[in-house]
């Protein structure tokens, strides 16, 4: 399934949270140097997929391979070694709130390298310059706006020049200007640093502009995949419902519930009490 241009491959992945099936036998591949978008409705486990790729969760069955090596079967030491080659931009930014923006970006460099403080300083300022926050180096995370915090987190994520970067909902809650900045940065960093990027999002128009390949997840499966133009032309009702943002369709408006008639007449309530 995987070849030399594949960096990450997810093979027959099945994952359950308690008794709830999140993924049922899904397969996908992430190509080197490309931006792959993973889209889907809220709550279907897009972030979970990134945690599975990062080895923070283990699948119930199936495999996840990074450069050919099975992530679930790695020892802790091997996993940490692999994680130095990958990075993740969390939805909240997840900056360390007790240290400055500069120290946040320097954090991984200080932890994993023995570089002189002068060189670290230069590298940190270069990363901050790339995201347009060199002037905010001395600010504390609490002094940053939401968009700036995400950019600072992005600078931290690229500090060790990773091969793979995973973006978790990078555009969520951003104003149009911040969103535009982030879209531009993801595209620019990807091509300038030859990064492989996975963008998990449900902001359709933004991500279709920059993605090389798109997967759409729903109902525990991959319901559509292809290049942005193939996705836009898809005849799947599910894919179209997602792309057009329709309230009801194959993904129902209503959360599964007992019959309305029973609920209103209290039958369901009595059933619960029993």
């Amino acid at each position: 399934m995987s070849n030399s241009s594949t960096l990450v491959s997810v093979e027959n992945l099945r994952f359950l949270r308690g008794n709830r099936v999140i993924y049922d036998d899904i397969n996908l591949t992430i190509e080197k140097g490309k931006i792959t978008a993973i889209m889907g409705p809220s709550g279907i486990g897009k972030t979970t997929l990134m945690k599975l790729i990062g080895g923070q969760l283990k699948p119930d069955s199936g495999d996840i391979r990074y450069a050919g090596d099975s992530i679930p079967q790695m020892s802790r030491r091997e996993l940490y070694k692999t994680r130095k080659k990958m990075s993740m931009l969390f939805q909240s930014g997840a900056l360390f709130t007790d240290i400055s923006v500069f120290d946040n970006v320097a954090f991984a460099l200080r932890e994993h390298t023995k570089l002189d403080e002068d060189i670290i300083r230069t590298l940190v300022y270069l990363k901050l310059e790339a995201v347009g926050l060199r002037g905010a180096a001395d600010l504390m995370p609490s002094e940053l706006s939401g968009g700036m915090a995400r950019r600072a987190a992005l600078a931290r994520a690229i500090a060790l020049d990773p091969e793979l970067i995973m973006y978790d909902e990078p555009f969520a809650g951003q104003d149009p200007i911040s969103m535009g900045v982030l879209v531009k940065l993801i595209k620019a960093l990807s091509s300038a640093l030859d990064l492989t990027s996975i963008v998990v999002t449900h902001d359709v128009s933004e991500v279709l502009d920059i993605a090389d390949y798109v997967y759409i997840l729903a109902n525990q499966k991959i319901i559509g995949e292809g290049t942005p133009s193939q996705i836009k032309a898809s005849d799947s009702e599910l894919v179209q419902q997602f792309l057009l943002g329709e309230a009801d369709g194959p993904v129902p408006f209503h959360f599964p519930a007992d019959d309305l008639f029973n609920t209103l007449l209290g039958t369901a309530q009595q059933g619960v009490k029993k």
Binding site: K51, G54, Q56, Y80, K81, R83, K84, M86, S87, M88, F90, Q91, S92, A94, L95, F96, T97, F107, A108, E111, H112
Partner: peptide
């Protein structure tokens, strides 16, 4: 709650140690 522990894990830094 703010995913700082998760981000340490993803940076290959053990939160237990750090």
């Amino acid at each position: 709650a703010t995913e700082q522990l998760s981000s340490l894990e993803m940076m290959a830094v053990d939160p237990l140690r750090r």
